[in-house]
Amino acid sequence: MKKSGMSLLEIVISISIAVVIFIPAMNMFSTTGQAVFKTRNFSFANSAARRISQRLMAMPYEDIVEVPLPGIALFDAPAESFFAPFLNTSGTNSGAKNITQADMPEFYSYLVQHDFRYSLSVSNVSFGDGDEIKSVGILITWSENNKNMMYRLYVYVPSL
């Protein structure tokens, strides 16, 4: 007489099928979640790089200098950098706000959490008589799931 119920083999097969289906399925979900969060970081890095690229156009040519890796943090950034001071709704210098825990807690924690930083890689060619052109590589780095990410944007800035 056969024994009633499923055989061990059947159980093993069904469990493996369940595992094979569910684990990637779960990964799929977490990947989606990750993708959205990654996208947020990517978009932010993108706009941070753009902010720098635009400011490079307006700043004095000689002030465009190399910022070596690991770079300057976007939060608690030193004065007169690309991200400090950040806001100022008052009429005087004293009202200026920086990206600090005290001034902008939420924005600050987002930047700190991912350790957003910027670096500049500057190549300068001089054609003589003050006629120069710089190629500036804007490197935004951040940390994401223990992975070091980088966003690169290149821009030409001519001397005036």
Partner: peptide
């Protein structure tokens, strides 16, 4: 140069225009 800072539901947008 004008900087734009935007916040939508905890997501931050940063832009500058020259």
């Amino acid at each position: 140069i004008i900087d734009i800072f935007m916040e939508v539901k905890g997501t931050f947008g940063l832009e500058s225009v020259y």
